[in-house]
Structures are given as C-alpha cells and as structure tokens.
C-alpha cells in the first residue's frame, strides 16, 4: 500500500467547516433566544410576581403587574401566598373567576360541537373548495377582533339583519333583544376561538391513512359506521390537542375583553354580579 507516501497532507478546515457540525443549533438559536427572552422567561416572571407581597392596597394578584411602573405594586424579593389567599377568599374575584371558567367551558363546548363536523367537512371537500374553506375559516382569526365583535353587534342589533329576518319569517312580531345577552356573548367568543380548533382537527384528519377508510368501506361498513368505528377513534388524540387549545383560547379570549372592558361582557358580568350581590 503506497497510500501513506502519496498523501499530500491534511485539509485545512475553514471557519464554515468548523461551524458546520453545529449548524442545526445555530439555525435554531434565533428562535430559542426569542422564545426564552420574550416568552418563557416573561411567563415565569409573571408567575414570580404573583408570589410577591403587594405594596399598594389594590394590586390584584396576577393582574397587578399590568399597572406597575418602577415597582409600585409589589415588594421585591418577598415570597408570599397572600395574593392567592386573597384571590380565593375575595367574593368579587371568585365570582369573576367562576364566571370566567363557566363561560369558557360553555364556549369550549359549543366550539367543539361546531368545529368537528366543520373540520370533517373540510377534510372531505374537493381540493378547490377545501382551499376556499380554509381561507374562510382562517379569516376571523387573522382579522382584527374589534371589527369582528362590532360586525356581530351590528348583525344582532334590534334593527340588525338577524332581527329583520326573524320578523320576516314571522317567528316574532317585534325584535328580540340579542345584543348584550349570553347568546351574543357566546356567538362572538366562539367565533374568536373556533378557527384554530377547526384547522387543528382538519390537520389531524389528514394524518390518517385514507386507505383505512377505503378498506372499511370495502369490508362493507356504511359511511357512518366507517366514520364512527375508524375515522373518529383515530382522530381522538389530535382532537384532544384541539380541545386543549380551545380551552386556553376560550379563557384567554374571555379574559382579554373583560380586562379591557368590552362593553358586552362587562354588562353580562355586572348582571351576573348583581344577582350574586357583592360585599
């Protein structure tokens, strides 16, 4: 073997060659930095704030951070469960929370009932229609939610289209009050929440092997039986993820306008509150 003698010497690695093995981590690093610096750490910080002793009279639990400037509402370096104790013993906060959770569950339920069939419809739609439906579904999510809420208000107003339709059909002679009701609140929140739910379930359905459905039909199962015995059970894991996303979003979608004082939910909550009579 004359190999060693003919060797002309080793190759001089360049900087790029040396970095190459780490390329995949280098490529991920901007995302990791963004996620850590502006998502994970801030969330942990928010959690930490909730364990500070509060300084002012009105810092309320987690939300206290929102009004803080230069450390006004909390005492740094302290650990206390006070905020939580106060939160859970305060009738007002508890009523808000119970209402929030209850309403979020209602929104989640309605969302799931509407989302699954819609997702299945999209899944089975021919290609062109499918693209159109995806665009329609994603539109409310990407649009400004104020525009959405206000469009709905206009629709449901006493002189709105829905009421005109109701009177035209003759269900009722005079307009039914739809705005500022549990109904209108649910309708608007579901619309804010449902797009991701539908898209996640649709994507889940698409991961299923289509030949399973064909096989089931070939073995003599009706379309309904096929759905119930094959498609649906296989889509459960992805649907559970969609459910989780829906709950988080339902809570969030509720919290946002109520914190910010959306007229609609404020009214709702105050009615709810007056019934329970606040101390």
């Amino acid at each position: 073997m004359t190999v060693v003698e003919t060797d002309l010497g080793g190759y001089q690695k360049t900087v790029v060659d040396r970095l190459a093995p780490y390329a995949k981590y280098l490529l991920l690093s901007p995302m990791i930095l963004l996620m850590l610096g502006f998502f994970v750490i801030p969330l942990l910080w928010l959690l930490r704030i909730s364990f500070y002793e509060s300084r002012g009279a009105s810092g309320f639990g987690i939300g206290g951070a929102a009004g803080q400037e230069g450390g006004g509402f909390y005492v740094e370096g302290t650990w206390t469960l006070d905020n939580y104790v106060r939160f859970f013993t305060d009738d007002y906060f508890m009523s808000v929370m119970m209402f929030t959770i209850g309403f979020a569950l209602l929104v989640t339920l309605v969302t799931m009932i509407l989302a699954y069939p819609m997702a299945y419809y999209i899944y089975r739609a021919p290609p062109k229609l499918k693209t159109a439906l995806i665009l329609i579904v994603i539109l409310p999510k990407l649009s400004n939610m104020l525009v959405l809420v206000y469009g709905l208000q206009m629709l449901l107003a006493n002189n709105g289209l829905v009421n005109e339709l109701i009177m035209l059909v003759g269900v009722s002679d005079e307009p039914i009050k739809l705005v500022y009701t549990l109904f209108s609140a649910t309708v608007s929140k579901v619309l804010l929440v449902i797009p991701y739910t539908i898209l996640v379930i649709t994507a889940t359905l698409h991961t299923l092997d289509p030949s399973l459905r064909e096989a089931s039909r070939g073995l003599g199962a009706s379309p309904f039986k096929t759905f119930w015995l094959v498609t649906f059970p296989l889509s459960v894991p992805g649907t559970l993820i969609a459910l989780l996303i829906t709950i988080v979003w339902a809570l969030g979608a509720f919290v946002s306008p109520s914190l910010l004082g959306n007229p609609e939910t404020q009214t709702l909550r105050s009615r709810f509150r007056s019934r329970r009579s606040r101390t």
């Binding site: 939300g63 919290v255 914190l259």
Partner: peptide, 17 residues
C-alpha cells in the same frame, strides 16, 4: 405554542422585559 397563547398573556407577561 406561542401562536396558541392568547394575546393578553403574551402582552402582560412581556411588560416586565
């Protein structure tokens, strides 16, 4: 996950940073 996180949570938690 961030895309599935409500805006209030992101906005509020980022105040500190």
């Amino acid at each position: 996950t961030p895309v599935f996180t409500p805006a209030v949570i992101i906005g509020m938690s980022m105040l500190g940073v």
